[in-house]
């Protein structure tokens, strides 16, 4: 029983190609099976158009984030994973602080991994939904460009119409 998967592994080993992803931020390298990496449309396009060398440099994404991305891709490349397992695994990957999530959403966007983009965006939305706008502004590093008059007007218009009961 135990030897069966090993045999299979050996049999398919010569065909299995690997790719090396290298974070350009801290020069960390990750060796991943090609079919895992190909979930990224960006990488797939590079491989398809023969732009990819042995090592694919990934700009702007740190090793820490790249590791999360690869973990996601590995989970989703596993054909025997059930939907429930994947949901749990995804929840584990996005159980991070908001700044890591913002890095992760940028990485998912750059590498064009739809599923990861979706779970990360949802998690960010869940974490900011109860925050006042000042906190949201700080998290996203956005500057307030309203004049005081405009701000008062937007406030008056957008204070919502429900209150706790009673």
């Amino acid at each position: 029983m135990a030897s069966a998967p090993e045999n299979e592994k050996n049999a398919s080993a010569p065909e299995k190609k690997t790719l090396t992803l290298k974070s350009m931020i801290n020069n960390e390298e990750f060796v991943v099976d090609e079919h895992v990496a190909l979930q990224s449309v960006t990488i797939k396009n590079m491989v398809d158009s023969d732009c990819a060398g042995d090592v694919i440099p990934v700009p702007t994404i740190s090793g820490e984030i790249l590791a999360l991305v690869i973990e996601y891709c590995k989970n989703h490349a596993n054909p025997s994973a059930s939907e429930d397992d994947l949901k749990k695994a995804d929840a584990g990957i996005v159980a991070k602080d908001i700044y890591t999530l913002i890095d992760l959403v940028l990485a998912a966007n750059f590498l064009d991994i739809k599923g990861l983009l979706e779970v990360t965006s949802q998690k960010i939305a869940d974490s900011i939904k109860d925050l006042p706008h000042q906190d949201v502004r700080e998290i996203f590093g956005v500057e307030n460009d309203y004049t005081p008059e405009e701000e008062a007007a937007v406030r008056a218009e957008h204070d919502w119409a429900f209150e706790g009961f009673p």
């Binding site: 965006s121 949802q122 939305a125 869940d126 900011i128 939904k129 109860d130 925050l131 006042p132 706008h133 949201v136 502004r137 996203f140 956005v142 500057e143 307030n144 460009d145 309203y146 405009e150 701000e151 937007v154 406030r155 957008h158 204070d159 919502w160 429900f162």
Partner: peptide
């Protein structure tokens, strides 16, 4: 992905 009233809150962030 935010509830509608939270979108209103976020409209106060910037133009």
């Amino acid at each position: 992905r935010l509830p509608a009233e939270c979108v209103l809150e976020c409209r106060k962030v910037c133009r």
